[in-house]
Write a protein that binds this DNA or RNA. Structure first.
Length: 805
DNA sequence: CTTGACCGGGG
DNA sequence: GTGTACGGTCAAG
């Protein structure tokens, strides 16, 4: 048979010292499984100085390798060897490619081969087998492939085949994936509710009866688990998703399943869910169904481009969807369950969380899929890999197709050494003049670092070549980049940028809001993410292709271009307000008329591929100052003509500040940007008055901090720890991982000793909130206008007194 | 200034 | 399982 399909997931099995891969695919509505039994694990060995490739090959062929090198150890078979030519660093070399039977043999065999005197080193021995397969076969998950082979039977799948051939040169066809989001509610370490939501299906399983049509009552945790598994399998979705499901929901599910002796057979192959350990995290892996946790993807890939500083579901949904969770605090939820009151609201909240996660997945999963197609990782990996790891997977694929051997991953020691080298200079930041500026035009370089790398052919493989006719030399440093042939990194960047350019022009022909437009948008976005990742990757200490020189040269040239741009502006008599890395802020009454001339002047001098672009106008901008009174870098706020603010560097979005402090700062910023400093001062004074008069609702004074262990295990005293200890004495359960919502109450003693949980707080310490919360954040803005703490406070008190007199 | 502990997301 | 990988902040030393 022959089938056109998309790979969604993949794994491998070993049976009797043989290995086969399982490709979990989707073709229309059909679930397809393909078995490939023709792919063997392998790695490379490079000959040392005292041997050539042939001698090394003979040595390997002639040896009998045993596990742990012991005579009675299990045999580590070398199935086949082959001599190949590969690019190694900057030279062409012969390498021995060594095939074995099962993947687990590779690391063991590699150790022994590496120890041979004929071996200089081994290469590509730590690429997970299924990734190796995807790379070598050219399969990119989510992209259409044609599988050919004999049809076989397989339970739980609509079609199954033993693969003879994989053809990746196939025209793309659209494929939809069904998605379900889920969420758990937990009380005293027990699962009490779970919600599930997909297009056309919603349900809440609850341990208590709730008068809602979507709620199904279950007797106990065991029944809840069994029903959960049943429903997931009945609905048989392709993608199961949620927010922080690896760390929270699935770890709860695992514990509950253990307690109740239930098998979490959630995958398509009837197997139980397993945790894959990956460093600091564990990932809940289902087979054949992709479990995509949205949180790590938001954290690793999306957050650099987002405004939100904390990445809880609420903030992320608000930024990406413009939608908020239902207002229900954790305290309210606990009370609701404890007293079995208002359970309808509780169930609504539970369902809402799944609904939000599902909407978020509508937004995010297509991006994960596009990145999977581009980088070639399965979506399960794509959503969990860090930026550097995504980049590296792409590089491994591109290296393979160019017959380049990937460098080895650095050891812990080597990473340490690389870190020790210290930071190199980053972007150039222009010191602004603090205060309020008007009529600001913002310009920035289109993808500064990627374009710099292309313009100067900066790449580890063009660095300091022995033979080269034309060199780009950086005299400040002791190295150069050869210009004769395009390097590995510039070639990849140029490819991505050009492809993206085409996609963008294709986008212009589609209507915004259509599915086609969205899909093109997601593709170009994936390409942008990847193109922008190479610079950071070269300076990342864990990178195989680490090249400090390349990273350093890139920022150096970036600084040169932004400084030249600033010079050009000044030569044209334009006033520079600020600049950071790849952006310049200019101001002037007539800036709108003069900007085109400025842009032409700059762009005419730039190398091909580089471009300065106009970003937008702002009617006002506030720049703060440092302790010494100099203009502060990276801390400013802008307002455009529509009154929308762009705030950078202020603390108003952090959760360790109380709402009263954050709200006040935002209001003060707006007043200042609307050119009304007096109003800003009044806002502060008024807030201080209200705090001192006890008029501020206690809700506005809460501060969050998370406990990671039981409160009594902390050595140091911190407000949240003390608040938790006191609550525990009153009989509250405070398990680890609790987020403590506390308020500093009035009275004597240290601040920590007066911290109480929000629900127990019957007073507040106005002095603390004035001095440690409101004043510091307000001063961050108002110091520029000459206000001091005493002044704001004094005035506050005075106007307070005025009122009473 | 360096070192080490803590924290994130979830309930 | 071709496992074992973060990065920033803050208080203490």
């Amino acid at each position: 048979m022959e089938i056109e399909t998309q790979v969604l997931d993949i794994d491998y099995r070993t049976e009797n010292d043989e290995v086969y891969l399982r490709l979990f695919c989707k073709s229309g509505d059909s679930n397809v499984i393909g078995y490939d039994r023709d792919f063997r694990p392998y790695f490379y060995a490079l000959p040392s100085e005292e041997a050539d490739a042939e001698e090394l090959e003979d040595e390997i062929e002639g040896q009998e390798f045993k596990e742990d090198g012991e005579d009675d150890g299990d045999y580590l078979p070398v199935e086949e060897t082959e001599i190949v030519e590969r690019e190694v660093g900057q030279e062409q070399r012969k390498a021995v490619k060594i095939y074995t039977t099962v993947p687990a043999n590779v690391p063991k065999l590699k150790n022994q081969v590496w120890d041979l005197p004929e071996t200089e080193r081994c290469r590509e021995f730590d690429i997970p087998f299924y990734r190796r397969y995807l790379i070598d076969e050219g399969i990119r998950p989510g992209k259409t492939v044609r599988l050919e082979g004999e049809e076989v039977e397989a339970e739980e799948f609509d079609r199954a085949l033993n693969i003879d051939e994989v053809d990746t040169e196939v025209e793309e066809r659209d494929q939809e994936y069904s998605t379900m989001a889920f969420d758990l509610e937990v009380y005293q370490e027990r699962i009490i509710m779970t919600s599930m939501k997909s297009e056309g299906f919603q349900k809440v399983l609850s341990l208590s009866e709730v008068d809602r049509s979507f709620v199904e009552h279950v007797e106990d945790e065991e029944e809840l688990l069994n029903r959960f598994v049943e429903i997931i399998r009945e609905e048989d979705v392709d993608i199961l998703t949620g927010y922080n499901t690896d760390e929270f929901d699935f770890s709860m599910l695992r514990d509950a399943a253990e307690r109740n002796n239930v098998t979490l057979a959630l995958g398509r192959d009837g197997e139980r869910m397993k945790f894959n350990r990956r460093g600091r995290f564990s990932a809940a892996r289902l087979k054949g169904r992709a479990h995509l946790d949205l949180y790590p993807f938001v954290d690793h890939v999306l957050s650099p481009g987002m405004d939100a500083e904390n990445l809880d579901l609420d903030s992320v949904a608000e930024e990406l969807l413009g939608e908020k969770k239902d207002e229900m605090t954790w305290e309210e939820m606990k009370d609701s369950w404890k007293n079995q009151e208002d359970l309808e609201k509780f169930a609504d909240y539970c369902l809402k969380d799944s609904e939000l996660a599902l909407k978020l997945s509508d937004e995010i999963v297509p991006q994960i899929m596009e990145l999977s197609k581009l980088v070639g990782t399965i979506p399960f990996d794509t959503c969990r890999l860090t930026y550097g790891q995504l980049t590296e997977n792409f590089l491994l694929r591109e290296a393979y197709s160019r017959e380049i051997l990937a460098p080895n991953r650095p050891s812990q020691q080597k990473r340490q050494d690389r870190r020790q080298e210290g930071a190199y200079a980053g972007g150039f930041v222009y010191t602004p003049e603090s205060g309020l500026h008007e009529n600001i035009a913002l310009f920035d370089f289109r993808s500064l670092y990627p374009t710099v790398m292309v313009a100067h052919n900066i790449s580890p493989d063009t660095l300091n070549l022995d033979e080269c006719s034309e060199r780009f030399t950086l005299e400040e440093f002791d190295y150069d980049f050869c210009q004769d042939e395009q390097g590995f990194f510039p070639e990849l960047i140029e490819g991505l940028v050009e492809e993206r350019y085409e996609l963008k022009s294709e986008m212009k022909e589609k209507d915004e809001g259509t599915a086609e437009y969205q899909s093109l948008y997601n593709r170009q976005q994936a390409e942008k993410i990847l193109a922008n990742s190479f610079y950071g990757y070269l300076g990342y200490n864990g990178a195989r292709w680490y090249s400090r020189e390349s990273a350093e040269a890139t920022t150096f040239m970036g600084r040169k271009y932004i400084e030249d741009t600033i010079d050009t502006a000044e030569e044209l008599g334009l006033e520079v307000v600020y600049g950071d890395t790849d952006s310049v802020f200019l101001k002037g009454e007539d800036i709108r008329e003069r900007m085109d001339g400025f842009l032409d002047e700059v762009n005419d001098d730039l190398p091909e591929f580089m471009e300065l672009e106009f970003e937008g106008f702002f009617s006002r901008g506030l720049f703060t100052s440092t302790e010494s009174g100099e203009g502060a870098k990276k801390k400013y706020a802008l307002i455009d003509e529509d009154g929308s603010m762009k705030i950078t560097g202020f603390e108003q979005v952090r959760r360790d500040w109380s709402p009263i402090a954050k709200d006040t700062q935002k209001k003060v910023l707006r007043a200042v940007l609307e050119n009304d400093v007096d109003k800003a001062v009044e806002i502060v004074e008024d807030t201080i008055d209200r705090l001192q008069d006890g008029e501020v609702p206690i809700e506005k004074l809460k501060i969050y901090t998370t406990l990671t262990k039981p409160p009594e295990e902390y050595g140091s005293t911190a407000p949240h720890v003390e608040a938790a200890k006191k609550a525990k004495k009153r009989g509250d359960e405070i398990p680890p991982e609790t987020t403590i919502t506390y308020v500093i109450t009035s009275g004597g003693g240290s601040i920590s000793s007066r911290a109480r949980l929000l629900k127990y707080a019957d007073s507040y310490d106005s002095e603390y909130y004035v001095d440690n919360q409101v004043l510091p954040v307000a001063l961050r803005v108002l110091k520029v206008f000459g206000y001091t703490e005493d002044q704001l406070k004094g005035k506050g008190k005075q106007s307070g007194l005025d009122r009473f007199s």
